[in-house]
Design a protein around this nucleic acid. Structure first.
Lengths: 251, 251
DNA sequence: AACGATGTTCTCTATATGAGAACGTTTACA
DNA sequence: TGTAAACGTTCTCATATAGAGAACATCGTT
């Protein structure tokens, strides 16, 4: 199956802005990074600009992402029924623990936080919303990863493992073992995996088909989380089971 | 200057989801609406899906917007320095009036709210964030529109005028007169133009080049706004002048 | 003043594009 | 339950077009 090359290249061009340190990029720069001719890149930019996906700064002649992407991104959130459905439960969890509560989903080979409720503590942990990260990186992601096809698990673990702290998993085998534990006990609590001093408890959401595509987690400073360990686990497991059954899941 | 047709069509396809009542769309439906062959639409969708811009629901075989658009939309917000810069001033206004405060920008032929601070009143007005609307529709937009090239003004007013309430401007001439008033007095206060019972006060932000590309407004129920008319005008004019001068604007 | 970088425009051929028909499935209805 | 219409998907093919590369215009620097 062949793909539309110019469309594919345009998508890559847009995504390149996600990993670029500066918000404005020039034609030459992009053409080098994307291995395309300047003429081709220029034509792509002109087309994308005419549709509002790209904006040109008249002063610098450089390009940046356009507001139409803001519209589309917001539409994704609006269309995301699960987040809407789950929100009251998150608020409930937030009221009980006063820690950061998140809703995490799987998309393709990545995990993304799509909803959160912030802690009200003066010292609180914050997550990067709407940004992809590896399925093995955090508790919220791993409880989803644990229920994925073993083919996907093997594939992702055969690639380079990204670590975030000195305590992050480095070995594929260690991660696999952890995933099995997660499947057995139905939740995970872990510390220092993505950020040092931070602990998360997460449990998966099952839909009507018994598939896991999302998870809920409670995240906070380890010294506030650990003393409440049993209570937090009970809360996260209770809520996710309740939501799963509301979604039509029968254990 | 020619554009890349497949890229243009893909952009149109994505934007079609913004005006569609259902979040999922099928190949046949899209091919009819976009006047393209089913085969072509299918190939576009497959390409966009491979890049995360589109997702297919395995159950219904239909397509919806993908999470990569969420990432990109969020990046637009992060890149938007003005919003970051202006935020403290908005919070200041919010503390003074306790009404909805907005930051509105011009993009191409439209206006978009890109930042807001909600009122804390139990009865409060809310705006649709990140969605395009006509430059003549609200006070926040009109104070920008008033400073646009007269060519753009004439062009947009020569097209069909969209009205939102029975009180909205219908006649191009009426709008033009109002735009002149706005330019003279430096702000606008209006009621019932976009939503009945709602009143807004807005004033433009000038950048270092003397260009107007954004505005700030206070919006709330008319019965709370009108009694404070003088005070609100003073506040909005004061804040926008202060920000403009910080942006390097010299009157 | 000359250079190097940029963004832009141009030409041209190989190629990828999009129409349309045909395929296999699912859905709707009689 | 059977038939037809709708769907998503695949295929082929003539043609439009995409992308390389060179040339141009503009800028800032040396």
């Amino acid at each position: 199956m062949e793909h539309l090359s110019s469309v594919k290249n345009s998508c890559r061009l847009l995504k390149f802005f996600l990993q670029s340190p500066s918000k404005e990029l020039g034609v030459s720069d992009l053409s080098r990074k994307l291995s395309l001719s300047k003429g081709a890149v220029h034509k792509m930019l002109a087309t994308l600009e005419s549709e509002g996906f790209i904006r040109q700064n008249p002063a610098t002649k450089q390009y940046c992402l356009g507001y139409t992407l803001l519209e589309l991104g917001n539409q994704v959130l609006k269309d995301h029924n699960l987040a809407e459905f789950v929100k009251p439960y998150l608020q409930n969890l937030a009221a009980m623990s006063n820690e950061l509560i998140t809703l995490c989903v799987k998309d393709d080979r990545d995990a993304i936080y799509v909803e959160k409720i912030d802690s009200q503590y003066p010292i609180r942990f914050n997550v990067d919303m709407y940004r992809r990260f590896p399925l093995y990186a955090t508790s919220a992601a791993r409880v989803i990863f644990a229920h994925c096809d073993s083919a996907l698990i093997d594939e992702l673990l055969s690639e380079e493992i990204r670590t975030f702290t000195p305590y992050s998993f480095k070995e594929p085998e260690a991660i696999k073992m952890r995933l099995q534990e997660i499947k057995l006990q139905g939740y995970e609590m872990s510390s220092n995996m993505r950020n040092v001093g931070v602990t998360g408890v997460a449990a998966p959401l099952f839909d009507a088909n018994g598939e896991v595509t999302a998870s809920i987690s409670i995240i906070g400073p380890t010294d506030r989380m650990l003393p409440l360990k049993e209570k937090l686990i009970e809360q996260i497991v209770g809520v996710t089971q309740e939501i799963s059954s509301k979604l039509g899941y029968h254990a």
